[in-house]
């Protein structure tokens, strides 16, 4: 099968390509010369504005993984990549005569402020969004579902990193928040002690994509790639992180730094407002990082995960420990050196 993959250089791209290995993977990259080659993957120069029309006759499956995950940019900027980029790829897909599947990778963030049980189904009515990123990804889903092509949507929850060696290709809001937490700079987190924190591993996400590709097409289907009811509770995750921090940081070991308070939405808003009023740039940065990732914790929900039960589930404690250890060893992803795997590949 010839598979066109976008987002190869993103957090999940390489692992997805690896797990699709029995197939021919054509990875769309902006600068071919800047991307490390990978066995079994053909690098194609291009992007969502310059799609390689010459390969259209060969493409049988498109896995659309590219997206802008910048949480703090205006909606117009996010729409350019996430909505208009997706529209252009759909137009391109219409020119692929052998195409029989267009798999759009979305995010569980499109649920916005929905709480409770979320079924694997299109969200036809827009919820209230916490940030512009969520909105742009919801809009992209609408564009995909309106297409006459054989489309499927896979919504991914938060990809924390590799369960194999803890590596993180592109540290994001989650990893920045972990850094501030470790440094004792986060006094409180929004949510409830029993709010689920739906983390998944890179390998789990990629395996789910590969399993989907291998299954029969079901046009219009929406699936959740999430840990579902296996997700740790916020207090459980914080206590586990504290147990890791205690072993590596004297301030945690002595009790000088303790796990942050879990605050309700109103209390957290009061704190954010106070931090904003202070004009302190570091605290504003902490709040911004927190704002892009943490508000989800206020909307406690369990995602239906009928499909992903087919894949062996990772252990969230092992994943969390490996990711933290990797981040610590690699200067929280800011290292210019080659990443240092902390665990031998399984």
């Amino acid at each position: 099968m010839n598979i066109l993959l976008t987002g190869f250089t993103g957090n999940l791209g390489k692992e997805i390509a690896k797990q699709l290995a029995p197939h021919r993977v054509l990875a769309l990259v902006r600068e071919r010369g800047c991307v490390e080659p990978m066995d079994g993957v053909e690098l194609l120069q291009g992007d969502l504005e310059h799609l390689p029309e010459s390969i259209a006759p060969e493409v049988e499956v498109i896995v659309h993984s590219a997206a802008s995950t910048a949480f703090r940019v205006p909606i117009e900027d996010l729409r350019r990549t996430n909505v208009e980029g997706t529209s252009r790829l759909l137009e391109f897909a219409q020119t692929c005569p052998r195409l029989h599947r267009f798999l759009h990778l979305s995010t569980t963030c499109v649920c916005g402020d929905l709480t409770g049980f979320v079924p694997e189904a299109p969200l036809t009515k827009a919820p209230r969004f916490v940030n512009a990123y969520e909105q742009s990804k919801w809009e992209a889903e609408q564009v995909v579902l309106a297409s006459a092509l054989p489309v499927e949507i896979a919504r991914l929850s938060i990809a924390a990193g590799s369960e194999r060696d803890g590596s993180v290709r592109r540290p994001g809001a989650l990893h920045h928040t972990l850094y501030w937490l470790y440094k004792g700079l986060i006094p409180m987190l929004p949510g409830q002690a029993d709010s689920p924190v739906d983390l998944i591993s890179t390998e789990f996400a990629a395996a789910a994509v590969a399993t989907l590709i291998a299954a029969d097409i079901s046009p219009g289907r929406v699936v959740h790639i999430s840990s579902g009811d296996h997700a740790p509770k916020l207090s459980e995750l914080l206590n586990f992180l504290a147990s890791l921090f205690v072993e590596r940081n004297r301030a945690w070991a002595s009790g000088a730094i303790v796990t942050p308070e879990i605050a309700d939405a109103h209390t957290f808003a009061l704190f954010q407002n106070s931090a904003r009023q202070s004009g302190d740039l570091l605290f504003q940065r902490v709040c911004e990082d927190a704002e892009s990732f943490l508000p989800g914790l206020l909307h406690s929900r369990t995602l239906a995960t009928s499909f992903v039960h087919q894949i062996p589930l990772f252990n969230w404690r092992v994943l969390t420990e490996r990711v933290f250890t990797w981040l610590l060893a690699n200067h929280w992803g800011r290292s210019t050196r080659a990443p240092q795997p902390c665990y031998a590949p399984a």
């Binding site: 004792g184 700079l185 006094p187 730094i257 303790v258 308070e261 704190f271």
Partner: peptide
Amino acid sequence: EREIIAAYFPAARA
């Protein structure tokens, strides 16, 4: 200075 500000609420509550 900043660590102190961040430590204020959890320690105060405790």
